[in-house]
């Protein structure tokens, strides 16, 4: 009886303890990070909802140009498609193709940013600023932080594009494309929420 548990503890067959597969490790971390980002944007969206009719007697949501922002939203959504294509090409081993799609994604992202800069300058021109009302503060913070996320994404995509040109390739490069892709899709999905909440939702 005393010896019974021994059998259970017999040495198991050898296993590969050398290199851990980095794929699940990094993907786990990226998902965790994106979970954190959800709260980050959630807090800003809550703030915006609290202040969306709080215009301090100034300009409110009537300033939005829905057709224009819809167009730039479409551009951003398309970039998710090109990102998928880039990832697919990497997986398929077609580096040239992947490079093209990476560049296309970065370009679409940049177009979206240009649209946002144009929109901001229009609004500021018309008198909606960070300091004009709680509505203005919440609007610029939410859309601005989203824009910053897009900019970081473009930077990452650009770096990957340059790295692929310079021939600095690692075994896990497909993984990096996948991780950047996860981030990029997340930023797109958040934009869908922001677009709905900020631009489309009717004032109470």
């Amino acid at each position: 009886m005393a010896g019974a548990p021994l059998a259970e503890h017999a040495p198991a067959a050898g296993h590969d303890e050398g290199h851990h597969d980095v794929r699940p490790v990094r993907k786990t971390a990226m998902w965790v990070f994106l979970g954190s980002e959800c709260v980050f944007f959630g807090a800003m969206i809550s703030t915006f909802l609290l202040y969306r009719s709080n215009t301090n007697g100034g300009i409110g949501s009537e300033i939005f140009d829905i057709p224009f922002t819809s167009a730039s939203s479409f551009v951003l959504l398309m970039s998710s498609l090109t990102m998928v294509l880039a990832h697919g090409a990497y997986y398929g081993g077609d580096l040239r193709q992947a490079r093209v799609w990476l560049a296309a994604t970065a370009l679409l992202g940049t177009t979206f940013l240009a649209g946002q800069i144009f929109e901001f300058s229009e609004f500021i021109h018309q008198g909606l600023t960070l300091t004009s009302s709680p509505f203005g503060s919440a609007f610029y913070m939410l859309t601005g932080f989203h824009g910053a996320h897009v900019a970081v994404g473009v930077l990452l995509l650009g770096s990957m594009f340059l790295l692929s040109l310079g021939g600095r390739l690692y075994d896990d490069r497909g993984l990096n494309v996948e991780l950047v892709g996860l981030y990029w899709h997340f930023v797109d999905i958040v934009w869908i929420v922001i677009f709905t909440v900020v631009y489309l939702l009717q004032q109470p």
Binding site: V32, G35, S36, E37, V39, F40, G42, A43
Partner: peptide
């Protein structure tokens, strides 16, 4: 992970 971003 889920609380710090709010105070951030």
């Amino acid at each position: 992970i889920f609380s710090l971003p709010a105070v951030g």
